[in-house]
Design a protein around this nucleic acid. Structure first.
Lengths: 130, 130
DNA sequence: CACACTATGTGCAATTTGTCAATAGTCAAC
DNA sequence: GTTGACTATTGACAAATTGCACATAGTGTG
């Protein structure tokens, strides 16, 4: 059974993947330059769900505004229209390291939360309804 | 050093990959009924950062709309104006269990990401700038 | 040329989040 | 008795985020 239909909107769940988008793109670009369309595919094989192309392209353009990546047009080796090839900048590399620190902290938070949950339900296995 | 000033936004802590507010409130209410103001304080002692009161109260009202909690006014044992005491419903209890499953999945994602990162930087310790 | 696939982009509505300010009761001190 | 500090909740609106529908355009195949 799924909590939809009980008023569960699945927020935070469908949205969760989006929160990983920027760090995931930075990490993929740490492997080497790439263009949006392949990044889109690699993201999915990354364990996160599917992404709307628009969202990915937009994220890349915003990351370029921030100076985390730079892009150049590639009109050559393409099986379609020209494509924009993104490359990580030193700043982007730095930002990726900060993201990693942040995810470490997040991991601790998730673990603390889950531990608190399991410990509590262990001590209070049945909840009496008043 | 913090990446502010490099275009990194980091307002509050909103860009964190995981949002804990709702599951944390559900877990706190699993301990027993409580009103917003104390939940606000307990959230902070929970290891998560500080929360804006408005955000917490709003979350509680929305959770009530969803039927995860119910509230009643308490005009008695108060050191101030009447307060709204929230209590977890059976549905809220169920939703908490789904949140826990979701956080387990999130934990796996964070761990996979971090592992991919560390593995990659280990194999490519220095990035040459072209 | 019609069609599938590659590749990127615009624009806008809907939702979510942040913030500022308002209201209001209790208590203690002055 | 009123000023100020703390308790407690809410409203309204701006700003940011996200989803989605659609637009554009090149390449290769039958």
């Amino acid at each position: 059974m799924h909590p939809r239909g009980h008023g569960w909107r699945w927020r935070g769940c469908s949205r969760r993947a989006v929160r990983f988008l920027e760090p995931a793109l930075l990490l993929l670009l740490h492997h080497g330059p790439a263009h949006g369309y392949t990044l889109l595919e690699r993201l999915e094989s990354f364990g996160l769900g599917e992404f709307d192309p628009t969202v990915v392209y937009r994220a890349l353009r915003e990351m370029e505004e921030q100076g985390w990546v730079v892009s150049a047009w590639d009109r050559e080796q393409t099986q379609g229209p020209p494509r924009r090839v993104y490359r990580l900048t030193p700043l982007g590399d730095e930002v990726l390291r900060f993201w990693v620190q942040d995810l470490e902290e997040t991991r601790r938070m998730v673990e603390d939360f889950l531990q608190a949950y399991y410990q509590h339900v262990e001590e209070h296995p049945m909840e009496e309804e008043p």
